Computed example of a mutant assay.
Amino acid sequence: MELEKRKYPIGVFEKPSVITAQQLKEWIKDIAQFPYILKATVAPLTAEQLQLTYREGGWTIQQIIHHCADSHMNAIIRFKLALTEDQPVIKPYPESLCAELPDSKNFPIAASLSILEGVHSRWHALL
């Protein structure tokens, strides 16, 4: 049970039964604000702190930030495919393997924070 709590500290996602226009506006606002909130949150962290994990065997903070850049780049492309193709194919990617690549493990987070800022700006404009 403790592992489940650590995997999902705010709980497992539950799809709302009704999604209102106001909720959509809030979610779009979240997309716009995410990179700035993340940047402010990690700004005071040292290089050593970026290597900490939330739970044993989990990704480091650095890997999570790089994962956000990877997954959010994939997300905007998936949105665009859904908007432009009659039958879009959503291709998954091996997240856990990507987190082990050198650009996720041994690379400064500044590049991924910049990617997130640009991707989220475009994503917000698209939505």
Rank of each mutant, 00 (worst) to 15 (best):
E85Q: 14
E48L: 10
A75Y: 02
Q49V: 03
I65P: 04
L52R: 13
G58H: 04
G57P: 12
S71E: 07
I64A: 10
L50M: 10
S71D: 11
V89T: 10
P88G: 06
L81M: 08
I64V: 15
H66Q: 11
K80R: 13
K80I: 09
D86G: 14
H66A: 08
L81G: 04
Y54V: 04
A75L: 10
F79R: 14
P88H: 07
T84H: 12
A75I: 06
Q51Y: 00
I76S: 00
Q87W: 00
L83Y: 11
S71M: 13
Q49G: 08
A47Q: 14
A75C: 05
D86Y: 00
I61P: 05
A69S: 14
C68F: 13
R55W: 05
K80D: 03
F79H: 11
G57R: 08
I65L: 07
I77E: 04
D86F: 01
H67C: 01
N74A: 11
I64G: 07
T84Q: 13
Y54R: 07
D70V: 02
K80L: 15
E56Q: 13
Q63G: 03
K80H: 10
E85F: 04
G58N: 06
W59S: 06
M73S: 15
I65M: 01
Y54Q: 10
P88N: 01
D86S: 15
D70Y: 04
A75T: 10
L52F: 10
L52I: 00
W59I: 01
R55K: 10
I77C: 05
I76H: 02
H66G: 08
D86M: 04
D86A: 13
H66V: 04
H66L: 03
E56A: 10
L81A: 14
L81R: 13
K80E: 06
E48P: 03
H67E: 05
A69M: 06
D86L: 00
A47N: 13
T53W: 08
L50V: 04
I64L: 13
W59D: 01
C68G: 00
I61G: 03
Q63H: 04
I77H: 01
Q87R: 13
L81S: 07
Q51I: 01
I64F: 03
G57K: 07
I64W: 00
V89S: 07
C68H: 09
V89K: 11
I64D: 05
I65Y: 06
A82P: 00
I77R: 03
L83R: 12
Q51C: 11
Y54H: 12
T84D: 06
L83T: 02
R78T: 05
I64Y: 01
H72D: 11
P88L: 06
W59E: 10
F79C: 14
H67Q: 12
K80V: 09
S71G: 07
D70A: 04
A47W: 00
I77K: 00
M73N: 14
G57C: 11
C68K: 09
I77G: 02
L83M: 14
